[in-house]
Computed example of a mutant assay.
Amino acid sequence: MPEIVDDKKTVPAEDLARFDVMLRSAGRIVAFTGAGLSTEAGIPDFRSPGGRWSRMKPILFQDFLDSDEARRETWRRRFDMDGEMRRARPTRGHRAIASWIKAGKSPAVITQNIDNLHQASGIPDDAVIEVHGNTTYAACLDCARRYEIEDLRGSFAATGEAPRCDGCGGFVKTATISFGQPMPEIAMQRATQLAKTSDLFVVVGSSLVVYPAADLPRLARKQGANVVIINREPTPGDRYAHLLLRGEIGDILGNFVLESGAKP
């Protein structure tokens, strides 16, 4: 079990040096990111004190399907958070992870985040595996027709009614995964395969409490990968880590931007 570093102290230089060696010697790096990465971009997380769920109860997927009121409230909340989404920009942490992919050291990033900031940092869409979906667009739950959020705003403001699909009449929902909604099968298959074939698995800003995604560090270690967890607080997955780095994510990852074409 690695030594836990107090998050009120500077990360020891020897731990940063150890991570640098792991990063540069790895042939296949996979980052797995959570809400802690994007809080530094001004997007509140869900679970921590002051987070969204301390202020409002999450709406279950079945409630969305069953209740007009739940659908309206879901959309009201989505439009209320629009300012946060518009202002958010990729952080030093996002840019560092993007550099690993651009340098050819990492095939993709797995993320629980729904904010599109990995794509905004320059990572191609097909190299961002979103296991909890994406809130920057919406889709019909029946026919999967895509809708842009801005296109739905006017009708909601005018009528107060949750949008329905123009094509089939189905419910339109942001392309996120709600509690009780099936996980995206293809994304989870890709994430699991990446975890199993990585030789360095870096968890960044995830509380590691939401399954099945939270099991990915265990799978990576079981297959022989080095596991590093970068987070401000302890997580249930810390027992799988070879190295724990406690502190501000941008301050840590800002030291680990790789140049394109970097070699192991």
Results as ranks from 00 to 15, higher is better:
residue 3 E to T: 14
residue 4 I to V: 15
residue 5 V to Y: 13
residue 9 K to D: 13
residue 10 T to G: 10
residue 15 D to H: 15
residue 18 R to W: 08
residue 20 D to E: 15
residue 21 V to Y: 13
residue 22 M to G: 01
residue 22 M to E: 09
residue 24 R to E: 10
residue 25 S to D: 13
residue 26 A to R: 02
residue 28 R to D: 07
residue 31 A to L: 09
residue 32 F to V: 01
residue 34 G to P: 07
residue 39 T to V: 15
residue 42 G to I: 11
residue 43 I to M: 10
residue 44 P to A: 02
residue 45 D to A: 12
residue 46 F to G: 00
residue 49 P to R: 13
residue 50 G to W: 10
residue 51 G to C: 08
residue 51 G to K: 04
residue 57 K to Q: 12
residue 62 Q to D: 15
residue 66 D to K: 05
residue 66 D to V: 00
residue 67 S to C: 07
residue 68 D to N: 12
residue 72 R to M: 09
residue 72 R to T: 11
residue 74 T to V: 12
residue 76 R to C: 07
residue 78 R to I: 05
residue 79 F to L: 03
residue 80 D to A: 15
residue 84 E to Y: 14
residue 85 M to W: 06
residue 87 R to I: 05
residue 99 S to Q: 09
residue 103 A to V: 11
residue 105 K to G: 00
residue 106 S to W: 06
residue 108 A to D: 09
residue 110 I to C: 02
residue 112 Q to P: 04
residue 113 N to G: 04
residue 114 I to H: 00
residue 115 D to R: 03
residue 115 D to T: 04
residue 117 L to V: 06
residue 119 Q to H: 13
residue 120 A to D: 09
residue 120 A to N: 06
residue 123 I to A: 00
residue 125 D to P: 10
residue 126 D to W: 14
residue 126 D to F: 15
residue 132 H to C: 00
residue 136 T to G: 06
residue 137 Y to N: 02
residue 141 L to W: 07
residue 142 D to T: 08
residue 144 A to K: 15
residue 145 R to K: 15
residue 146 R to P: 04
residue 148 E to Y: 13
residue 151 D to P: 03
residue 152 L to W: 08
residue 153 R to Y: 11
residue 154 G to F: 12
residue 154 G to H: 12
residue 156 F to S: 04
residue 157 A to T: 04
residue 160 G to N: 13
residue 165 C to F: 06
residue 168 C to I: 07
residue 171 F to Q: 01
residue 172 V to S: 01
residue 173 K to W: 11
residue 175 A to I: 06
residue 176 T to L: 09
residue 177 I to D: 04
residue 179 F to A: 03
residue 180 G to V: 11
residue 180 G to D: 11
residue 184 P to F: 08
residue 184 P to S: 06
residue 186 I to C: 06
residue 186 I to W: 12
residue 187 A to E: 15
residue 188 M to R: 05
residue 188 M to P: 02
residue 189 Q to H: 13
residue 195 A to V: 02
residue 196 K to R: 15
residue 199 D to Y: 10
residue 199 D to H: 08
residue 200 L to A: 00
residue 203 V to K: 02
residue 204 V to K: 04
residue 205 G to P: 04
residue 205 G to K: 00
residue 207 S to N: 12
residue 209 V to N: 07
residue 210 V to G: 05
residue 210 V to M: 08
residue 211 Y to G: 07
residue 214 A to D: 05
residue 216 L to R: 01
residue 216 L to N: 00
residue 219 L to M: 15
residue 221 R to C: 04
residue 221 R to K: 15
residue 224 G to Q: 08
residue 229 I to S: 00
residue 231 N to M: 08
residue 232 R to C: 03
residue 234 P to R: 11
residue 236 P to G: 09
residue 237 G to M: 00
residue 238 D to N: 14
residue 240 Y to A: 00
residue 240 Y to I: 00
residue 243 L to S: 11
residue 247 G to I: 03
residue 248 E to W: 08
residue 249 I to N: 02
residue 250 G to S: 15
residue 252 I to K: 02
residue 254 G to F: 08
residue 255 N to I: 08
residue 256 F to R: 00
residue 257 V to A: 10
residue 259 E to R: 12
residue 260 S to E: 15
residue 261 G to M: 03
residue 263 K to A: 13
